[in-house]
Structures are given as C-alpha cells and as structure tokens.
Amino acid sequence: MKKSQIIILVVGIAVIGLLYSLPRVVVDNEEGNAEIVDQGNISGPSVETLHDAPLSEEARETLDAIASKLKGETDKEKFAILADTLALIYAQVGKFDSAAYFLEQAALKLDNLQTWEKTGEAYYEAYTFALNEQKVAYLADKSRTYLNKVLEVNPQRLDLKTKVAMTYVSSANPMQGITMLREILEEDPTNEDGLFNMGVLSMQSGQYKRAAERFEELVRYHPDHLQGQFYLAVSYFESKQTNKAKRQFQEVQSMTTDPMVLASVESYLEKL
C-alpha cells in the first residue's frame, strides 16, 4: 500500500486496528487459498456521493467557477488543463476521489497513456483512503480499468501491477491479487512494493512469523523503508520474538523524529 498510507496514522496499538481495516482476506502459510469475507454490494456510488463533500465557501466558489468553464470548454487540451486544475485543488484538500473523477474526465477527452496512468493512480490513491466497502470496490475497479490500459502497453511496469494486485485483494477474487504479487516477486525478488504488501497481508491474517520473513527481506534490500522497519518490529512483537522486537523498535527510534511514530514505538517498548 504505497504512498503514505499507514505509518503516519499509527499511534500505539492502533496499528493493529488499522491492519484489520484492510481488505479482509485469509491467507495460509504459503500465502494462498485466500477467501474474502463480507464484500457487500459492489455497485458504484453516485458521482455526487463521490465528490460533493463539504468544502469551505471560498474553495467551493473557486471550484464552481472552474467547473463552469469546464462545462463550456470544447477544446480538448484546454478542457484537460481545467480538469487537472480541479483535480489538484481537490487533492490538496484531501478529496482524492473527487480528484480522480476530474482526471478521468480529462482522460476521456485525450485518451492517451499519460492520462490513463494519472487517472488510474488517482483512483488508487482514493481507494487506499476509502472506508465504505461499496466505495472501496468502485474505486478499485476504476483504478484497475485505467492502470490495466497502461499495463497493456507497458507490461514491465511492476509498480502499476502491484497496485492492480492490491485492488484485487479487496475484490471477490482476492487470490488473483495474491497470484499477481507472487508473479511480481518471481520476476523481481527485491521488489519493494511486492515484499511490503505480502508482509502486510500476512500480518492481517495473523501470520506474524511469515510477515516477519517478508519484512526482513524488505529491509535487507530497502533499509530506509520506515514502514517496513516498523512492521518488522510489530511482527516480532506479535510472534513473541521479544529480543528481536526490542532491538527492532530501537532501530525504528533511530530512523525517525516523527512524534507519532516514536510514541507508538514507546508504547510497544513499555510492553516488552
């Protein structure tokens, strides 16, 4: 789950709660035979539900003015510029689904590799922050649609393939995502996103020793990966490897000055 998603949100034991808020998949010791639990209705929410969230009056006036220009713009390039501007504003206020929606409008006009990737990435970011199951499924499907268009042209883009894999984990066919992650690691055993996400999935299913193995691989090849270092410590802690957990939490302490991360580390150390 790239980009920012987890470590800065962690305070103390809340990290475990966050793991259980991820797509609910059961993975065996070989990271296979996964099954999804309670996916619910996967039909898409309305556009209004996606991007008509409350904004400040000033921000709303700015957005309305640009949106008004967008409706009347017939030139494809100018339309795309206006749509990108709207997307940027929405992203800056944390409304990632709205940003993705407007990038998609530009992609529908220009229909090229660059706009497909921007739209797919934007929908993936919105997906990573979504909480409602219906919305998660809708945003995941949108992300796959555009990222797969890029992968058809550039199948070597393992970074995008990893994102597609993770959207499948929250779908009715989670094994497809796990299979894709395995394929990525077969092609590139040091792949940062692949190792991290396999570790997270193992944590979520309670396989902390297996998770520790994944995170050990991750930090061996990518020692500056703070999330991986932290989750390695948590995996040691949960698998009762007390001495390793203590040393690893101390390692995390030496890597960051982020007060939220340090507070979380301290809470674990107090329990050791």
Rank of each mutant, 00 (worst) to 15 (best):
P45W: 12
P54F: 01
A212F: 08
E266Q: 14
S56M: 06
S239A: 10
L113Y: 04
L103S: 00
Q241V: 04
P23I: 11
K209T: 15
V26L: 07
L262S: 10
T74S: 08
I81H: 11
H51W: 08
D28R: 08
T85V: 11
L22M: 15
V15Q: 06
I16Q: 05
Y138G: 01
F249G: 12
A126V: 12
I66E: 09
E186H: 09
K149T: 11
D97A: 04
G199A: 11
N29E: 07
S143G: 06
K244R: 01
I36N: 14
G194N: 14
Q114H: 04
L160T: 11
I16F: 05
D193V: 08
T115H: 06
A140W: 00
A211F: 05
G120F: 12
W116L: 02
K244Y: 00
Y168M: 02
K2W: 09
S98N: 02
Y101G: 03
E217I: 02
Y90M: 09
E35Y: 10
K246M: 09
A91K: 03
L63K: 11
L147R: 07
M203Q: 11
P155A: 12
S170Q: 05
T190E: 05
H222W: 14
V169N: 05
D64A: 04
Q248A: 13
Q39V: 03
Y20C: 01
K246G: 07
E216S: 15
T62I: 06
L195W: 09
S267Q: 09
I13A: 06
D224I: 00
E48V: 02
E73V: 00
T128F: 08
V234T: 15
P155L: 07
S4V: 03
I8P: 14
S170I: 00
R210N: 01
A130C: 10
Y208K: 02
Y124R: 04
L139C: 02
G194Q: 14
M1L: 06
G32S: 08
D75E: 02
E125I: 01
N173T: 15
A140S: 08
K246S: 04
L139Q: 13
K109C: 03
Y138N: 10
D64V: 04
R24H: 06
